[in-house]
């Protein structure tokens, strides 16, 4: 792969690769933009740039991840995601075969999520100026009537529900990156959650807030929402689903699973009287089989997120600035 005028042939090759993989009526028109109609309702838009090393990992690759990430960001408003754009930054010399794999994975992820990649762009940068492949995606969706979620809408009395086990993605990436050999391979949980969200919203439209605990993990998500909604949160360690192998890996590595990133999980805040109903819907869905009520939203002027530990103590779920620094004295 080369850049500049000499790479004209190659650029064409890449365009074809995209066209073939993503083919849909809007993209196939080959305009500089896509023109489409949206159903009535509030429109939601989200964008995410994906840089990940390594590009291929157990459970996925940057291709599907770039679709899941943006689809989920849109879906966390309760919206139905419809269209995506994709921007690629490729490093000169990146193997075409790898790109093919990534694009195929993207296409499959888009199809699974029921969204179309309707416009895109590719740039090739000099060797050494990129890390193989970066992908930026933007998504558009529409919020169904009667749904109104927001990080400031959570109130004391709400239940906190997670859709499944935490920490899988972060630990999978780290194990692979560092070539750590554990007894069982830990897979990333990367997946789109829009179908799960649709099922949830249909039954409980007045969910107060949804959020995908990506970077910073559950801890960052809970703290952000506690601040925005001016509430406290009490969660219970024994209720938080963490796979045994993820737990063991975290203990060994000295990581806290609550701070580790997820790419296919959501946290829902809903009125207590709807919590069991919502939980049942989630557990009936393949992407929410391990869903669990992990705690309560409480009144708290200081907006603490606290966790009752397995030993019965209560500890702060901290608001960490950047990377975890030791604090033991």
């Amino acid at each position: 792969m080369v850049h500049g005028s000499g790479g004209k042939a190659m650029a064409q090759l890449i365009d074809e690769l995209f066209l073939n993989a993503f083919s849909n009526p809007w993209l196939d028109e080959m305009n500089d933009q896509a023109c489409f109609q949206l159903p009535a309702g509030r429109v939601v838009m989200a964008t995410d740039s994906h840089v990940i090393s390594p590009l291929f990992f157990p459970g996925g690759d940057i291709g599907c991840l770039s679709v899941h990430g943006t689809v989920n960001d849109v879906a966390m408003s309760g919206a139905v995601p419809k269209y995506l754009s994709a921007g690629f930054i490729l490093e000169e010399g990146y193997p075409l075969a790898d790109l093919q794999t990534i694009v195929t994975s993207m296409a499959a992820a888009a199809e699974e999520a029921g969204v179309y990649i309707v416009t895109g762009d590719t740039k090739v940068v000099e060797r050494g100026k990129g890390d193989g492949c970066f992908i930026t995606t933007t998504g558009i969706g529409v919020v169904p009537e009667g749904v109104s979620m927001g990080a400031d809408r959570v109130t004391a009395g709400d239940k906190i529900i997670v859709s499944g086990s935490l920490g899988d993605h972060g630990v999978a990436i780290m194990s692979l990156r560092e070539n750590l050999t554990f007894e069982t391979t830990i897979e990333s949980d990367t997946q789109s959650l829009n179908d799960l969200v649709a099922a949830m919203v249909e039954v409980v439209p007045d969910i107060h807030c949804l959020r995908d605990p990506t970077r910073g993990g559950l801890s960052a998500t809970l703290n952000e929402i506690a601040q925005q909604s001016k509430v406290g949160m009490q969660v219970y360690e024994t209720e938080i689903p963490v796979k045994p192998q993820v737990k063991a890996a975290c203990e060994f590595l000295g990581l806290d699973p609550l701070f580790v990133a997820n790419e296919g999980k959501l946290v829902a805040f809903c009125p207590a009287d709807k919590a069991e109903q919502l939980l049942a819907v989630m557990r009936a869905h393949p992407k929410g089989m391990d869903a669990a009520i992990i705690g309560d939203v409480i009144e708290d002027d200081l907006q603490f997120v606290q966790m009752q530990t397995a030993f019965g103590g209560n500890r702060m779920v901290d608001w960490i600035n950047g990377e975890q620094l030791p604090r033991i004295c």
Partner: peptide, 24 residues
């Protein structure tokens, strides 16, 4: 100790292996 056989990997790769001048 769980992980005693793996801890060499952490040290080899300097993975989450900060250093400290701590007397404790």
């Amino acid at each position: 100790q769980p992980g005693a056989d793996l801890i060499g990997q952490l040290l080899d790769k300097q993975l989450n292996c900060p250093t400290t001048t701590s007397a404790g």
